[in-house]
Amino acid sequence: MFYGRESVLTGADRDHAEVSMLALHLPQSSLVLINTQLLQAVFRDPRWAGKLTAADRRGLSPLFRSHANPYGRSHLDMAPRLDITRR
Rank of each mutant, 00 (worst) to 15 (best):
M1L: 02
F2D: 05
F2I: 06
F2M: 04
Y3E: 06
Y3P: 00
G4R: 12
R5V: 14
R5N: 07
E6V: 12
E6M: 10
S7T: 13
L9V: 11
T10V: 15
T10P: 01
T10H: 09
G11R: 05
G11L: 07
A12K: 07
D13P: 04
D13K: 12
R14K: 12
D15R: 03
D15W: 02
D15T: 03
H16A: 08
H16M: 05
H16T: 14
E18F: 01
S20E: 05
M21H: 13
M21W: 14
M21Q: 15
L22D: 13
L22C: 11
L22A: 13
A23I: 05
A23N: 15
L24N: 15
H25V: 02
H25N: 11
P27K: 05
S29M: 12
S30V: 12
V32D: 02
L33G: 06
L33P: 00
I34E: 03
I34Y: 03
I34L: 06
N35K: 02
T36P: 00
T36F: 00
Q37F: 06
L38T: 11
L38A: 13
L39T: 03
L39I: 15
Q40K: 13
Q40H: 13
V42S: 08
V42Y: 09
F43N: 03
F43W: 13
F43P: 00
F43C: 05
R44Y: 06
R47F: 08
R47K: 07
W48L: 01
A49D: 05
G50Y: 05
G50P: 07
K51M: 10
T53P: 00
T53H: 08
A54R: 02
A55E: 15
D56M: 03
R57G: 02
R58P: 00
L60I: 04
L60Q: 06
S61E: 01
P62D: 02
L63E: 03
L63Q: 07
F64Q: 00
R65H: 14
H67F: 08
A68G: 05
A68R: 12
N69G: 01
N69D: 13
N69W: 03
P70N: 09
P70L: 05
P70T: 10
G72A: 01
R73Y: 14
S74T: 14
S74E: 07
S74V: 15
M78I: 08
M78G: 02
A79N: 11
A79P: 00
A79K: 12
P80H: 12
P80A: 11
P80W: 12
R81M: 02
D83E: 10
I84W: 15
T85E: 11
T85Y: 06
R86M: 07
R87F: 06
R87L: 09
